[in-house]
Computed example of a mutant assay.
Amino acid sequence: MSSVLLLSCPDQQGVVAATAEFIADQGGNIVHAEQYVKREADADGGVFFQRVVFDLVRSDVTHESLLDAIRPLADKLDMTVDLRDSSTPIPTAIMCSKQGHCLYDLLTRWRSGEMPMDLRVVISNHPDHADIAGHMGVPFVHLPVTKETKPQQEAAVLATLAEYEVDLVVMARYMQILSDDFVSHYPMKIINIHHSFLPAFIGANPYRQAHERGVKLIGATAHYATADLDEGPIISQDTTHVSHRENVAELTARGRDVETVVLARAVRAHLEHRVAVHGHQTIVYN
């Protein structure tokens, strides 16, 4: 069994040694470890973060027994622990609207084995992408929404996620604002993608607005969805240079290319348990 341990605690002497000793006592063999200390300018000490990947060779050690065994160490060091079995893919749902570029990219990466997720269902407020989901062998659930039916539609979406036992929700250009109640069901488990023009170019046709302003740099941001709209902890970002020669359609195409890459990068980081959230920030391990 291969496991990933994400931990954080007040920075103190002996954390690395204690963690390595614990893993060795459980019959584990560390194959990769990375750590980081975040120091605050206005506070004493700092916060220690570590990601440890290890293999277990003892058949009598299970994921559940590991969680029980690490609790005394976690209590002693005031440690927050997230222990994952990396051999079990995370049950995932993709939500989309009419724009399909991010959905198609994720489906292709998943089918090719590049994206290690257990894709359970695609949910959309439009029927446009039912055929591609069916072609890829993924259940497609169409749940239309209007301003008047939004509470009922969100309840239906949550029921669908529960039915498919989803643990990660990917908003692949799902063009609906999620309510605070919806987000509260999946804290730090909803990944959203948007163009990095926000808040400068809000509303419809952001690339047209950017073209009219003569921008020279466009980009995209993938982040966890929180109650604060588009202000959740950032997982991945990227940019590309553009010029006055590109029209709105060309600018939009360039922007969509960046969106697909940034979203895929963020989703993969979450699936591989490489993201630790600390307040409004993330630590994303290599």
Results as ranks from 00 to 15, higher is better:
Val4Tyr: 03
Val4Lys: 11
Leu5Ser: 06
Leu6Ile: 03
Leu6His: 02
Cys9Ser: 14
Val16Glu: 09
Ala17Pro: 10
Thr19Asp: 07
Ala20Thr: 14
Gln35Glu: 15
Gln35Thr: 09
Tyr36Trp: 12
Val37Phe: 01
Arg39Ala: 01
Ala41Thr: 10
Asp42Phe: 05
Ala43Phe: 06
Gly45Leu: 12
Gly46Cys: 08
Gly46Gln: 09
Phe49Gln: 07
Arg51Ser: 08
Val57Ala: 10
Val57Trp: 14
Arg58Lys: 14
Arg58Gln: 11
Ser65Glu: 06
Leu66Cys: 05
Asp68Ser: 12
Thr80Ile: 08
Arg84Ser: 13
Ser87Cys: 06
Pro91Glu: 14
Pro91Leu: 10
His101Val: 01
Leu106Met: 13
Thr108Lys: 10
Trp110Lys: 10
Pro116Leu: 11
Met117Lys: 03
Ile123Ala: 08
Ile123Gln: 12
Ser124Ala: 14
Ile132Phe: 05
His135Ser: 12
Met136Phe: 13
Gly137Trp: 05
Gly137Asp: 11
Val141Pro: 01
His142Ile: 08
His142Asp: 06
Gln152Leu: 12
Gln152Val: 09
Ala159His: 10
Thr160Asp: 08
Leu161Val: 01
Tyr164Arg: 10
Val166Ile: 10
Leu168Asp: 05
Met171His: 04
Gln176Thr: 03
Asp180Met: 04
Met188Phe: 09
Met188Ile: 01
Ile193Met: 04
His194Asn: 08
Ile202Asp: 08
Arg208Ser: 08
Ala210Pro: 02
His211Gln: 14
His211Ala: 07
His211Thr: 00
Ala220Pro: 02
Ala220Phe: 00
Tyr224Phe: 15
Ala227Thr: 11
Glu231Gly: 03
Ile234Pro: 00
Ile235Lys: 00
Thr240Asn: 03
His241Val: 14
Ser243Val: 01
Arg245Ala: 13
Arg254Asp: 03
Val258Gly: 02
Arg265Ser: 14
Arg265Met: 05
Arg268Gln: 12
Arg268Thr: 15
Arg268Val: 07
Glu272Thr: 12
His273Ile: 01
Val275Gly: 04
Ala276Asp: 10
